[in-house]
């Protein structure tokens, strides 16, 4: 399936549908704090497992980097 992740097209061959945790594993996102939006909707940490990403979805995974 194809998704748009952080404004870039990304082909995912592993699965046809995946949750946020699986996406992080495939992308090797290991940051402890990431703000996730799927098609503009905020997905909180407790919903990572149940929120599904499908073909054509737009996903933003904003890495929270300390420093301010």
């Amino acid at each position: 399936m194809k998704i748009v992740l952080n404004n870039r097209e990304k082909e995912i061959t592993e699965k046809n549908e995946l949750n946020v945790i699986e996406l992080f594993e495939i992308m090797r996102f290991t940051f402890p704090n990431i703000v996730v939006k799927i098609n503009g909707e905020l997905v909180k940490k407790q919903d990572y497992k149940t929120s599904l990403i499908k073909n054509g979805d737009k996903v933003d995974a904003i890495h929270m980097i300390s420093g301010g």
């Binding site: 940051f31 402890p32 704090n33 703000v35 905020l42 909180k44 904003i62 929270m64 300390s66 301010g68």
Partner: peptide
């Protein structure tokens, strides 16, 4: 304007405002 130091506080602020 989110201008805090810690990653987890940044996440809390952004998620509070968005939701």
């Amino acid at each position: 304007v989110e201008a805090v130091d810690l990653a987890e506080t940044k996440q809390m602020i952004i998620e509070t405002v968005l939701s």
